[in-house]
Design a protein around this nucleic acid. Sequence first.
DNA 1: CTGCATCCGCCTCGATACTG
DNA 2: CAGTATCGAGGCGGATGCAG
Lengths: 236, 236
Amino acid sequence: MTMERKKRSYDQQCALAYALDVVGERWTLLIIRELLHGPRRYRELLDALPGIGTNLLAARLASLVDAGVLAPTEPRRRTGGYMLTDLGRSLHEPILGLSRFGMAHTTLHGARPGATVRASWAVLAIEAMVDAERAPEVDETYQFEVDAETFHVQVSAGQVEVRSGPAVDPTLTVRADANSFFRVGMRQLDPIEALVSGAVAVEGVPAAVTRCLRLIGLMNDVATPGRSAALGPATA
Amino acid sequence: MTMERKKRSYDQQCALAYALDVVGERWTLLIIRELLHGPRRYRELLDALPGIGTNLLAARLASLVDAGVLAPTEPRRRTGGYMLTDLGRSLHEPILGLSRFGMAHTTLHGARPGATVRASWAVLAIEAMVDAERAPEVDETYQFEVDAETFHVQVSAGQVEVRSGPAVDPTLTVRADANSFFRVGMRQLDPIEALVSGAVAVEGVPAAVTRCLRLIGLMNDVATPGRSAALGPATA
DNA sequence: CTGCATCCGCCTCGATACTG
DNA sequence: CAGTATCGAGGCGGATGCAG
């Protein structure tokens, strides 16, 4: 028999309150983040969320399955795990929006020094940074290799798509360790400096670098000779 | 002297985790929701958030001011309260996205029966429902009067804006009590039925009703004569 | 009266141990 | 591997106190 579990609720007839009743508790949105780019097993989720505790993960998963946000993949498979439902995938955009806020906040204030870094976060970061409005006219693909993680951004007819895995024929390949990658994203490491110091390596069509930087918002404008917005003294 | 307060953190170099470190705790996003449409006093926030507890509200406000999400308005004014900063306003879109998720979830599952209803939530609901892609060709304004709250949606050259307060010359005026309004929004009360029963009253240009319903996603398509998408048996 | 701080009971959370 | 059981610590909710 299903135990009668009382859930804490805001008890407001408000769409946001209803959403937070489902995904507002601690760890919940991070679990969904892990599932955004494919199904994951219980153990993988535990490893990706240091500090969550096994009971809490189990409780969250059960609650989210119950809410229709995610579902077990093939109950009888031993390879089974959890995947997002259509409803769960509708959280993709709000998560990207929150990520943009997180980046903006971290740009203003500092980043936590001892925080654990995972290359798989980089996909989300790029998704959040990409502004389709600034997509270049030309169709091209930028591949990123952050630690062992590989993904790419494909621009095609003004449409921008971010996918995990390698690209077929990337215009550009960007290699970086996860730490440097995030420091560039948080505007705490200038992309040009990162290139010079070797923390970030780029390979491919040189002219595409500017277009890529513009697409992900790291270059404010088409660089006018003599004054680049990306160049400047380190912010105190 | 400011007491040394330890904040619980996810400790991940991830934009989403950083965001949730700031706005992920209980009540925080609801506080920001209250401030989305103008500054509010401490007492107003307390009244708008039943169950929060005075100490927690004070702690959240201090934490958010510290994070640069909101700021006190005119410290020396007795009318002073709290308002969003630019950084705080950047949470508008993610909040709308979460609201859309909340509406979708509540559409599938039930709504909480005894939940408190406030007309001011209606503005957010309309904002979340509006899809600028479906804006009509004509420029017109739809005014909503939900309980004592009045706001309007203005369509101008394909741009859609939701503002509080009355419109100058609304094409349409929709009147409803808050409960019926939300039941329609959550797809638990058919808009046509609501009109017939009198729970929702409409006044103005009749042809604008269809365009308004399409704009806020309550009518799937341009109604073809003889078969309206909004008409149908109650979903079991 | 508003804007908080303090105290207390309870529930959630985090960590470990344990089971199929 | 995939959870369940247990327990201490801390965040939360409610009542009350207090200063401006």
